[in-house]
């Protein structure tokens, strides 16, 4: 099957007072339709920068991105707007992405309205259905975004992203504040949606347990370069790069009484 997303030689350098930061140093990456690829790496390694460049929210300095066979970086105007329904992003910090005073209803209804996926009359029903899918009460729709909990906000962001039935969703730490029971439900939802619609996910996460549970393939970024890529089970069981080895070694483990005694301090 041909690729859904193909990133070649992507570069991005930021300037910050007297420093320059090479956030992406020639990144290559491909994603097939219906695939889940985990993108992991240290804090500051360039994951969000890459995700935002793919979602056309920041302009890279160099390189190429093809999405559904077309040159993503050349898209303008109407073509670009139509693409936004097909390629959604869930932001790392949902509170920053939305106007905190906007209601939950508006946050979810906006993309449905803009892309003409629901008329005025069907809107309440469409919004309720999406809220229920992410495990939230429909009554939450009336609240402002700052009047719900952090994990509820993350789920509203996911409801908004799936609303337009995209073919690719960039998920930037989408589960970071969710307890395991809710997380399990969201992972199941993402799975069902993939089976139904064939959506692909680029899952940015620092949680190797989550990557292990849902992504068939994993790619490791370090200092703006991809340093390792392969089937998730293989990479996590036997990491080759120093970056991947460090991440795997530091995964917290449950401290039970039956484990050898640990002296705190």
């Amino acid at each position: 099957m041909s690729d859904l997303l193909e990133v070649r030689g992507l570069t991005k350098t930021y300037r910050r007072s007297r420093e320059t930061i090479a956030a992406l140093r020639g990144v290559d990456l491909t994603l097939a339709p219906g695939e889940t690829l985990a993108l992991v790496g240290n804090s500051g390694s360039g994951k969000t920068t890459l995700g935002r460049a793919i979602a056309r929210l920041i302009e890279p300095d160099g390189g190429a991105i093809r999405f559904e066979g077309r040159d993503l970086l050349a898209m303008r105007g109407r073509e670009l707007r139509a693409m936004r329904a097909r390629l959604q992003i869930v932001f790392q910090e949902p509170l920053e992405a939305f106007n905190p005073r906007a209601t939950v209803f508006r946050v979810i209804a906006d993309p449905l309205r803009v892309h003409r996926l629901a008329g005025r009359a069907e809107m309440p029903e469409a919004v309720s259905r999406l809220l229920v899918r992410v495990g939230l009460e429909p009554a939450l729709a009336a609240r402002a975004v700052h009047e719900i909990s952090g994990g509820q906000r993350q789920r509203v962001a996911i409801a908004r992203a799936i609303a337009t039935r995209p073919s690719l969703i960039v998920l930037d730490e989408p589960l970071s504040a969710l307890d395991v029971s809710v997380r399990g439900r969201i992972l199941a939802l993402l799975d069902d949606l993939q089976a139904e619609t064939g959506v692909a996910y680029l899952l940015i996460t620092h949680d190797l347990g989550v990557a292990n549970a849902v992504a068939g393939r994993i790619t490791v970024i370090d200092g703006g370069s991809i340093v390792e890529e392969g089937p998730t089970k293989v990479v996590l069981a036997d990491p080759q790069s120093a970056a991947a080895r460090r991440l795997v070694a530091a995964v917290p483990r449950l401290h039970r009484r039956t484990e050898p005694a640990r002296i705190g301090g």
Partner: peptide
């Protein structure tokens, strides 16, 4: 250690079971 090894509420037990480790 007690809460993790011998949780008294079923909810806590479920949380521990659902923990996604690398060996899961």
């Amino acid at each position: 250690e007690e809460v993790v090894s011998a949780p008294s509420s079923p909810y806590t037990a479920a949380l521990i079971d659902a923990h996604l480790g690398l060996d899961a």
